[in-house]
């Protein structure tokens, strides 16, 4: 693993906290582009956790400090340099009310599928990219299931009569 402090030194807008870089979500494109320019990195995964207020978990890999209710969006970047196959985590904390982040699709094309997944399941709207659609759920699905305030739809043995085939397939 390359030294995270050295990486942070060339990224003016990032600070190191608990073994991860913490950035403002709005600066994601710049920071990720700068990381990519270092060479040997690849976007591996985008994870998102819906954190309630006031329960700061002491992380096994270092504690995440106290924060208000937020979405913890993390870009997991794969360090592919010689002798290292570790993950560099770039975190940002996003407000519940403004669940928005810029898309990094222009930096790494693999972000396309990953961002659509996070949008579908978590409801983070990625701005500045084409066709941000639901990828796993039906197009007419309501809500974002992995949010903590998602209410499980009441299911009986019979599917709802409102099934619309066209909508289920996401248009044509």
């Amino acid at each position: 693993m390359r030294d995270i402090n050295k990486i942070a030194a060339v990224l003016p807008k990032a600070e190191v906290r608990d073994g991860a870089l913490v950035i403002q979500a709005s600066e994601a494109v710049e920071v990720l582009a700068a990381v990519k320019a270092l060479g040997g990195f690849a976007l591996f995964d985008i994870t998102c956790v819906d954190r309630p207020a006031g329960t700061p978990p002491a992380s096994a890999e270092g504690a995440v400090p106290a924060y208000p209710a937020c979405f913890e969006l993390a870009w997991r970047i794969w360090d592919l340099s010689e002798g290292s196959k570790d993950i560099l985590t770039i975190r940002s904390f996003i407000d519940h009310d403004r669940a928005e982040a810029p898309s990094v699709m222009a930096v790494w094309k693999s972000a396309d599928m990953l961002e659509r997944e996070v949008w579908d399941l978590m409801g983070i709207r990625f701005t500045g990219r084409p066709h941000l659609e639901r990828v796993l759920n039906r197009a007419d699905f309501e809500g974002h299931p992995l949010r903590k305030d998602f209410v499980m739809p009441k299911r009986d043995r019979f599917p709802p009569a409102s099934w619309d085939k066209k909508a289920a397939e996401g248009g044509q």
């Binding site: 759920n137 039906r138 699905f141 599917p159 099934w163 085939k165 289920a168 397939e169």
Partner: peptide
């Protein structure tokens, strides 16, 4: 799944 069911019916 819900998404597949209409197609299964078809």
């Amino acid at each position: 799944t819900d998404k597949m069911a209409p197609l299964l019916k078809t």
